[in-house]
Lab assay of single mutants.
Amino acid sequence: QKPVSAYALFFRDTQAAIKGQNPNATFGEVSKIVASMWDSLGEEQKQVYKRKTEAAKKEYLKALAAYR
């Protein structure tokens, strides 16, 4: 399975908490809140997710090379 983006990892980590705080929110509303949070996130915090994405990408490429 291809690795997901840094934003997708952040979304996955954040979505449940947002939904818990806003139980009646639609998926679209939750998405807007998470997107706003991502935009206001500091670069250092974004780097945490970007590093996770890079590590997953390297593992994916290694597994793909081994498969071929």
Rank of each mutant, 00 (worst) to 15 (best):
E54M: 08
A35Q: 12
F11H: 05
L64V: 14
N22K: 04
A16I: 10
L64D: 15
D13C: 05
K52V: 02
E54N: 09
R12C: 03
Y7H: 07
A6Y: 04
A6T: 02
A56T: 11
L9M: 11
L64A: 10
V4T: 10
R51E: 15
E44Q: 10
S36Y: 07
A25H: 05
L64S: 14
Y67K: 15
T14A: 05
T26A: 06
R12V: 03
Y60S: 13
W38P: 00
G28F: 10
R12T: 08
K2Q: 04
Q15R: 05
E44D: 13
V4Q: 10
Q15T: 09
A17E: 10
L9R: 03
K50R: 13
I33Y: 08
T14V: 08
A63E: 15
K58G: 10
E44P: 07
A63G: 15
N22F: 05
M37W: 00
Q21V: 05
S31P: 00
Q47M: 09
K57Y: 05
K19V: 09
L64N: 15
L41F: 03
I18W: 01
A25C: 04
I33D: 01
A16R: 12
L41H: 01
K46D: 01
A25R: 10
K32A: 11
R12L: 02
K52H: 06
A6S: 10
V34F: 00
N22T: 05
K2I: 12
R51F: 06
P3H: 10
D13N: 03
T53E: 15
A8S: 12
A66N: 14
E43A: 10
L61M: 08
Y60Q: 14
K62S: 10
D39S: 12
F27L: 13
V34C: 08
R51M: 10
Q15F: 12
A63M: 07
A56Y: 09
S40Y: 05
I33F: 03
P3M: 05
S36I: 07
S40I: 15
T53C: 10
E59Q: 07
L61A: 14
I33M: 14
A17H: 11
R68M: 06
K32S: 09
K52F: 00
K32W: 03
E43Y: 13
A65W: 10
A66K: 06
L61Q: 14
V48G: 15
A56S: 08
L9G: 05
K32G: 05
T53H: 14
Y7F: 04
K52Q: 05
K46G: 01
K58V: 13
Y67E: 14
A25N: 02
R68S: 06
A55D: 09
K32V: 05
L9C: 09
L61R: 12
Q1W: 05
P23T: 00
A17K: 15
V30R: 04
A65I: 04
I18Y: 12
V34K: 00
K2F: 10
D13A: 06
T26I: 00
Y60V: 10
V34Y: 00
P3A: 07
A6G: 08
V34R: 00
N22Y: 09
R12W: 02
N22M: 03
S40W: 01
A8W: 06
K57A: 11
L41K: 00
L64M: 11
N24D: 11
Y67N: 15
L61S: 15
A16T: 11
L41N: 00
Y67I: 12
P3V: 08
I33W: 03
Q45M: 04
M37N: 09
T14Y: 14
K46M: 04
L64C: 15
